[in-house]
């Protein structure tokens, strides 16, 4: 049952994230708090228990499938946004292009090791 034990850890840390948000009113999702808690837990243990790896690995592999049901919703609101599609597509595609170039350029400028490696 290692995967089940691992799943209990993951859901337990998620629950911990919910409790932390309840008391601190942080505008962050409980999943992200749980992720940071898991990372902290692993740092403290200095290794990844097999149970956590057995549950975490397949879940990470399924991320794309898990966001699909939400993503597909956009096809069903198309009519309501008539007349705004140019603005939406322009903003997303051009905006993403600009921010991708900015990010990579900044990273390259700031990272000394990138020039060192041939």
């Amino acid at each position: 049952m290692p995967a089940l034990t691992g799943f209990l850890w993951l859901t337990g840390l998620w629950l911990g994230g919910e409790v932390i948000i309840h008391f601190t009113a942080l505008p962050i999702s409980s999943g992200v708090i749980g992720m940071l808690l898991l990372c902290a837990l692993l740092i403290q243990r200095q290794r990844v228990p097999t149970s956590i790896a057995a549950a975490a690995q397949p879940l990470i592999g399924l991320l794309a499938m898990l966001i699909m049901p939400g993503v597909v919703g956009v096809f069903f609101i198309a009519d309501e946004l008539a007349g705004q599609w140019l603005a939406i597509f322009g903003a997303l595609v051009l905006g993403t292009a600009a921010s991708v170039v900015t990010t990579l350029w900044l990273l390259k400028r700031l990272t000394p090791t990138d020039q060192r490696t041939p």
């Binding site: 799943f7 859901t11 998620w14 409980s30 992200v32 990372c39 990844v48 956590i52 690995q57 399924l62």
Partner: peptide, 16 residues
């Protein structure tokens, strides 16, 4: 989609 929760937490593993 409920599993997005534990999957997000699971990202702490590659991070570590």
């Amino acid at each position: 989609t409920f599993l997005l929760g534990p999957a997000t937490v699971a990202l702490g593993m590659p991070l570590y």
